[in-house]
């Protein structure tokens, strides 16, 4: 895929008992945003979730990979305690700090029809890397 034509996107990949989430973007920040979206898609269809309410998230970690796990786990925590799925994400990096925001709404079981709860992001199949074509890819397995 030629650099510049690629739209940011997310994917799922198989893991024995659970599921892998992958985000691909033109920047590391976009890849992190898409990975978060991939995680939402494990739970529900993000198109059904309105981004009415903003939740700010700040994480710090010694490297990009641990930062990805921290970002996803911070979202798992916010989803669980606020009872909110999220459908849109913003990520900015400042060295080893991530300043992020997630946009969602209070869960509506009828409309969102959640399939499964994510227990946590893991270090399995974890990577954050820039491909030779310039695109960034961020991924890990989430435990459900």
């Amino acid at each position: 895929m030629a650099h510049g034509h690629a739209e940011p996107r997310w994917e799922h990949f198989s893991h024995g008992a659970d599921i892998g989430v992958r985000g691909i973007g033109r920047s590391k920040a976009e890849a992190f945003e898409q990975t978060a979206l991939a995680m939402t898609q494990v739970i529900t269809d993000a198109d059904r979730v309105e981004g009415r309410e903003r939740v700010n998230i700040v994480c710090q970690a010694p490297d990009d990979e641990i930062l990805l796990v921290d970002w996803l786990n911070a979202l798992v925590y916010e989803m669980a305690t606020r009872q909110m799925p999220f459908s849109r994400f913003e990520v900015h990096f400042d060295d080893h700090q991530l300043d992020g925001a997630a946009f969602g709404e209070h869960i509506d079981l009828q409309r969102h029809r959640p399939a499964v709860e994510v227990k946590g992001a893991t270090y399995t199949s974890l990577s954050v890397e820039q491909n030779p074509d310039g695109l960034w890819k961020a991924q890990c397995v989430v435990d459900v």
């Binding site: 796990v69 798992v76 925590y77 893991t122």
Partner: peptide, 13 residues
């Protein structure tokens, strides 16, 4: 889940 997540990170680091 939260205990597991937090201690896993502490142990990794």
């Amino acid at each position: 889940h939260q205990i597991g997540t937090e201690f896993l990170k502490k142990m990794v680091v």
